[in-house]
Nucleic acid binder design. Structure first.
Lengths: 195, 195, 195, 195
DNA sequence: AATGAATGAGGATTCATTCAT
DNA sequence: CATGAATGAATCCTCATTCAT
């Protein structure tokens, strides 16, 4: 049976809340400790340093984020429906966790180069999922067979990321999930009018 | 006639270089002053505070950036060729100014929420140009007539931004400008195979 | 009958090693506990606090140190030969226990004033032995009869201490014990040429 | 004309007082700054870090200390009278500056290995003066001609150092300078009764 | 206009000690 | 007796900004 590490999770959850509320630079370790209900020093029994808290937050949360997306698209039949599901899940998960959305879209980007390298490493599996969908669509002949996978994936990720960031900066005042089909349509069919 | 304000420009140019070389957090006001060849205190005769330097850097540089794009697309006939030109110019200008690319794609994003609001304000005219192209394409019936302009523009900007950021993080080791036609094709035609 | 208290001695020995290897300020209680093979908390079943460990180290080690010197000089006939033996034993014991020498000559001196008062108390019997030799020499008329015992003892101890400290700082790269006769000669006959 | 660097000297003097009063570990940078009448940050315009303050205190004070001794013995005729003067000056200077005596005899020894290396470097010229006196005495045939200079110097320095340390620990309750002739006599003539 | 010496607020981290088990 | 997870106080240094010259 897996040990639950309650303190570790308390600190992770507290960090998300504190960063979302106070911003990256306003999030002192003592503030996170207080919110987590532990002593300052206890933080350092579970994390190497402050940066390690942030990396761990991202790893834990993105790990779940990606797992759920993989699960959801698993039983979808076509690359196209997989893409739609991915977009929906991407929007839904961040919609349903506004604090996390603030942290991933705004605050975590204020980190330094070293931390961003770690973040990119965590993102890799997600980008690989996108790559797989593109490749699958190509072999299914649903997508064009001469696509530059890297560029397509950058379009996909860049589009989703920018849309969520705008939504967060508008303080989540409109519905994000309902836009998934439109985004899916734009990505698959482009701007051009059908002749 | 506009005064040339040589010190002002010296400081702006110094700031771009210092930030590109030392990163956002390694760029102390004293370092910028030294590179600009002025005393620390002189900075505060031209800028309200450190944040004001950064905003001004972005305003000056993005101002030129956008102006040149507007100029370039001015004589293009169709929305589609305007979009291609915009993509080319976006890639070309950042390709040709690697220091600026580092600053806009990586370092300036480490700033706090307040600064990023300012940055978004500066970006507005650029986003408006994109919106206009989309609208023009719709009225020309080159693009579909039921496009959600905001979402399309977020797809466009997100795509370009993500592609340039990846290029910067790969240290500019491949050619960016030559990818413009492919990106244009992806945005206009999407992923789907032509029937 | 005295109980052997194995843990107590384990901790004392571990402390000497840890301090010699890591320096006074690099010797955390947890490090000593680990080397001794006990839990951190166990330390506090045998010692009042960290300072108490250090005092005890000094008491135990200096106790043996002094005992052996007293034993060695016991059967010597004259004050002069007692002095020679004391010098030899002082040098020999620290020579043969380099770790202890580092601790007594360098590391323990980094302690605070309170701890040093304790250390001086432990040294008292050793200084008394020196005083006795001086007094004996005076009553034997081997030494001058008007000596200021305190000053003489400070000269003796200061000389031996400085010589050993220099030797430790030179990392024990030369033989210490063989210098005992010269030091004995200097102390007894001084610098002056015989007429 | 030499610039007086008033702030630098203020900080040095403040450091001696603060360390003498509060001990090495009780001397926070902020306490030194306050006593010197400057802001905390000003300290760092003149010193690299806290350790650098301590090294500088020792350099400045020992520099003067040694200079005055060299000056005083300059016109003395024999090695023996030079030695007497050196002892007197050593005792006098520390007698007259009790704060400095506390710092050099007790507090500075609590420093780490790195700092002690620096201290030894500063002491070198003083030890060289002692060496010169011994050599001079040997060539004058006032001292024995087969003396081990290093050992003699260690005896001299160790003796003076131990005597001053004892005096400081007895809180300066007796006169130190008046003991110089006795110490001089002990060093030159040793313990042995004249036949 | 220009200088640059001086300011002083602010925070991550360590480690001796405790106490529930 | 023994454990070791948890505690929380305590401090050096940086750097944006000011202001007397």
């Amino acid at each position: 049976m897996k040990k639950t590490k309650p303190k570790y999770n308390q600190i992770i959850e507290a960090a998300v809340e504190v960063i979302a509320e106070n911003g990256y630079h306003g999030s002192q370790v003592s503030k996170i400790a207080k919110k987590a209900g532990v002593a300052d020093g206890t933080i350092y029994l579970y994390f190497k340093n402050k940066e390690d808290i942030l990396i761990s937050v991202f790893e834990e949360k993105m790990g779940q984020f990606i797992e759920r997306i993989i699960e959801s698209i698993h039983d979808k039949q076509s690359a196209s429906s997989k893409l739609l599901t991915l977009i929906e899940m991407h929007f839904r998960q961040l919609s349903e966790n506004y604090h996390l959305a603030i942290v991933t879209q705004l605050e975590l980007r204020q980190s330094n180069a070293a931390l961003r390298l770690q973040i990119n490493k965590v993102l890799k599996p997600y980008l690989a999922v996108m790559d797989d969908i593109v490749k699958e669509g190509m072999s299914e002949h649903i997508f064009r067979d001469n696509l530059n996978v890297r560029l397509v994936r950058q379009m996909m990720f860049g589009t989703l990321d920018e849309i969520v960031t705008n939504w967060v900066m508008k303080e989540g005042r409109y519905d994000l999930v309902s836009q998934a089909p439109v985004v899916h349509d734009l990505l698959t069919n482009g701007l051009t009018a059908k002749s």
